[in-house]
Design a protein around this nucleic acid. Structure first.
Lengths: 185, 185
DNA sequence: TGTGTGGCTGACCGATCGGTCAGTTAGTCT
DNA sequence: AGACTAACTGACCGATCGGTCAGCCACACA
């Protein structure tokens, strides 16, 4: 038996991610949960509080991941660790990632979104500064954006994914390729 | 002197792409254009008609690109041609692409969106069937999604891009890598 | 000088939005 | 039995939504 709070959080996250924050009404979430609109606002003081509860954990987790990366650096021995952790993160939090990647810029002003935007910017900045080669910067962007895209958006377009393990391993392998700073041409 | 129609279409596309279709009111578009809400609805019979006008050309262009690919196949000699055309397409239509990639699934029922979703699904399907190797399927997805991501979303997170030519060339090079069906391990 | 006509507008419509509030249950403790 | 509380609800609020409609105005053509 899950609590109404958890259930509402789960439903809201799914709806916010696919239909958008502004495109999802409290009424809609209430219907999916089998409750009234008033009940939703009983458990969460506002629509923004519901968003906060739904995506905040993912933002904090990405922040930890990024802080570790900034401390340890992208040298060859830590790179593999970071990549597996990053892939695991997107695996676990694909809806949250989809939400604050795609809606982050348009939801500025909401506290948790501002924090998410800062974190994503810091991540982008770190990779942009880790090489002076424009070509490599592009590789980094494609690795980060492409892997996030595969997990977050692919479902919506009926791209069939293999089993979780197979997908995870393939993602890790490709990211290792794309993030390798020196490659044979 | 550009016509009000063209101006409205341009403004609407930019707003729809960044703030979302449901998150953008006709009133908002009117303000940005320096017109009244009634004027917007004079030039376009409905909000949906405005969306149609804004993204339809991009959908048709992607359809042509995809039809050519389906006719010619992904053999080595045509692959390079497709990649440059695809990159050019995302370059020219990054707002439209951003819109129907991210909002497509939630805007089902709008005619132009349904057409866009069909086209994207066809594209995904083509690449998914062009190899039986799950690892390669993942490479294709990352190539298509990652390159789209770089051009459509990177701006929003202050990822500085190089000059257009440099970015385009880098994108083409990396996509050639990722789409090469046979590689050394 | 009239007669259109294309571009544009404000007033207005029903519906829905996020949010408030008083009140109704059902269960728990004393 | 009575008091308290957590969970939940319907009625209601002002604001905004997409859209309709009658009419205004500058300008072209007769």
């Amino acid at each position: 038996m899950v609590s109404s709070q958890q259930e509402l959080q789960r439903i809201a996250l799914a709806e916010f991610a696919i239909a958008g924050y502004t495109g999802t009404s409290i009424q809609r979430i209430a219907e999916l949960a089998g409750l009234s609109k008033s009940s939703v606002l009983y458990h969460f003081t506002s629509k923004e509080a519901l968003l906060e509860a739904a995506v905040s954990p993912a933002v904090e987790r990405l922040n930890v991941l990024l802080s570790d990366l900034e401390d340890r650096g992208l040298n060859a021995d830590y790179r593999a660790t970071f990549i597996t952790q990053f892939v695991d993160f997107i695996f676990d939090c694909r809806q949250e990632v989809h939400l604050f990647i795609n809606q982050g810029p348009s939801l500025v002003g909401l506290a948790v979104i501002d924090r998410a935007n800062d974190t994503v910017r810091r991540l982008a900045h770190y990779f942009a500064e880790s090489t002076s080669n424009p070509h490599d910067k592009m590789r980094f962007g494609i690795a980060l954006g492409g892997s996030a895209y595969m997990l977050c958006t692919a479902d919506n377009f009926e791209m069939p994914l293999e089993s979780d393990d197979e997908t995870r391993q393939a993602l890790v392998a490709i990211m290792n390729e794309l993030l390798a700073p020196v490659r044979a041409e």
